[in-house]
């Protein structure tokens, strides 16, 4: 009974390995590279032929003239070679310290803004690479960016709107703003 099953087990394992471990990923990769080459390779944004980031991977911003993203628990922040969340429990003193520090940084960079701070701006994302903030998170920062970039509020609002992605079919997910794309456009505007 035992011996009878050894040969089938070995051969089955080999063949299924070839089918699911080699043919399947290779076929998928082949189709992906032919049809969705840009997306399959990480949706990398290029400028003058040089890679300057990915549409889906956030970057770290703490300069007040830019929009800031989520906090990142990776070391260093937004380390896309080693994703990680903070894993801090809701009562962990370290979490409270991180939140306090972010509240302080936001307040110092924009002392006149007394609005309540949207919670996503003071908490760290699950991946440490979150490319987005909530629309409220962007609105909160508009006054500061307008002042430091020296552009009109209306212009900035329309740029934010341009980089806002609503719910899928108006129902699924949360409306978000892509921070890197937004800041890249601000930078372009300034260069002009």
């Amino acid at each position: 009974m035992f011996k009878n099953q050894i040969k089938p087990a070995i051969f089955m394992f080999l063949i299924l390995t070839i089918v699911t471990g080699i043919i399947y990923p290779l076929v998928i990769t082949g189709i992906a590279q032919l049809v969705f080459s840009e997306k399959a390779n990480g949706s990398i944004i290029y400028k003058d032929g040089k890679p300057i980031g990915s549409k889906f991977i956030g970057q770290s911003f703490d300069d007040p003239k830019y929009f800031w993203g989520r906090l990142s628990a990776t070391t260093p922040a937004y380390n896309a070679a080693s994703s990680s969340g903070s894993n801090l429990g809701p009562l962990n003193p370290q979490l409270i310290n991180n939140v306090k520090a972010r509240v302080k940084a936001l307040t110092i960079s924009d002392p006149d803004n007394k609005n309540p701070i949207p919670v996503d701006l003071v908490t760290s994302s699950a991946s440490g690479l979150d490319p987005h903030i909530s629309v409220a998170g962007a609105m909160y920062q508009i006054g500061r960016v307008v002042r430091l970039q020296g552009i009109r509020e209306e212009t900035l609002k329309s740029i934010v709107k341009k980089h806002t992605c609503g719910r899928f079919l108006g129902l699924i997910g949360e409306p978000v703003v892509n921070v890197l794309e937004l800041n890249l456009e601000l930078n372009e505007n300034r260069m002009k």
């Binding site: 989520r70 969340g85 903070s86 894993n87 801090l88 809701p90 979490l95 949207p118 919670v119 996503d120 908490t123 760290s124 994302s125 699950a126 991946s127 979150d130 987005h132 903030i133 909530s134 629309v135 409220a136 998170g137 609105m139 992605c165 997910g173 949360e174 409306p175 978000v176």
Partner: peptide, 15 residues
Amino acid sequence: LQPGGNMEGKEARFG
């Protein structure tokens, strides 16, 4: 404009 709630360890797009 925002999902609110306990956003620590969550992605903005999922809320």
